[in-house]
Design a protein around this nucleic acid. Sequence first.
DNA 1: AAGCGAATTTTTGTATGCAATAATGTGTGT
DNA 2: ACACACATTATTGCATACAAAAATTCGCTT
Lengths: 235, 235
Amino acid sequence: MKAHGTTATTATAAATVAAPDTEQAPSGRATNEVYERLRSAIVNGELRPNMPLIEADLSRALAVSRTPIRESLQRLSAEGVIAPRKRGFAVREFSAEEIQETYEVRAALESYGARLAAERASDAEIAAIAAIQTEREAEEQPTHQFRVETNRRFHAAIMAAARNKRLADCVFQFGQSYFNQRIARLMSEQDYQRNQADHRRIVAALKARDAGAAEAAMRTHIMHTFLTFQRVGSL
Amino acid sequence: MKAHGTTATTATAAATVAAPDTEQAPSGRATNEVYERLRSAIVNGELRPNMPLIEADLSRALAVSRTPIRESLQRLSAEGVIAPRKRGFAVREFSAEEIQETYEVRAALESYGARLAAERASDAEIAAIAAIQTEREAEEQPTHQFRVETNRRFHAAIMAAARNKRLADCVFQFGQSYFNQRIARLMSEQDYQRNQADHRRIVAALKARDAGAAEAAMRTHIMHTFLTFQRVGSL
DNA sequence: AAGCGAATTTTTGTATGCAATAATGTGTGT
DNA sequence: ACACACATTATTGCATACAAAAATTCGCTT
């Protein structure tokens, strides 16, 4: 490919990130803007794994110099979203083993969060968690969007109730991987029903203030999601 | 303070990081060199919390331009070692609550690691873990250095046996904070003996392949370290 | 003195330039 | 056609330059 002056049109990383030239970053930080855009593009799967991130291309696409690009890349690399290659960086690819490892870490973190929530949550917080699940159960025509969003809120509410910001941050980080969205999209109706049952068990344990049960239920729940991944095979 | 030409002598961040002008980074990557030096300076407590990191100073002290400095700062920021201020970055300070939170996360991760190790380790790995603890018990005049190092090896061996690289990386990350070294230094003989007892319990659980017991023992062990911190009060 | 505001200095954020190195292409001999 | 040396290009890594923003100093007024 020959770069021809202004705007590249090939299916390269830069193409999918191009800025909608409105909203032209009046808020001082170009680096943050670039960082956010790249991260969301990667998490949403717009930038495919192993796609190399060419600084000059991104620079043109996002209309900033290479400096904020390079700083964003460092940050994304530290977060494990992209990986260093011999030359520069590429969108990180996760093997099946690495995905399993990630789910195990999430299981460790979220199950401990459930335990802490059972010990520390106020009654109001537990009621709020239960309410989210009730909302899920009540919806008769749940869209994919609805399911993802209420699920996110359910888990976030539990983490908030655990009163450990660091833990919540960690869990959030681990949710920021392209394969999560993909797995969510590939979930069958049966998977969804199993998740609902898991959620009910978690709520019950929290209401009973049974830390051990909450922890175990959450652990099982997370690993169920991993089973979904295994069933659908490679992404 | 007036920067006067070449070498600053005041007690600023840059002073403590200055390169020993030998070993002049023949291996291409200046950014990595800078990153490593800053991180270790912070973790070892040479750079005190809240100390602002002035790019120009660091640049002079480490004899590189501001570019690799800034890239290192992005990385350290993503890792939570430094924190953004209104202007630039400063060494991150952890409140007592944040330290507790960190220990809770470590407890979650390492206890799950112990569980996985109990399920997955080979007999040889468990023997190796036991051997490290035996070595600890055998030493009659253990220096601080010896205690820290064997402790590190003990925990690392368990994480390796858990066969989850991501988990091991996470635990390692959480160990990279200045307060860990400080707490280790403030440990009383009684604390050390309690740790030894904890380690023995963990080894016993692993030998028995009792995942639940290994998990519980490790969790208790980590939280004991947190109790040590609480006893000595503020750092 | 204390408070306030403008001028000055620091320090950062972004852009650009240049040399080094990896990647790629091209030709030649076998 | 294949392998290999060599030339060319693409891309990075680091340094520098410059403008904007924040912090500081200084002088003025009260």
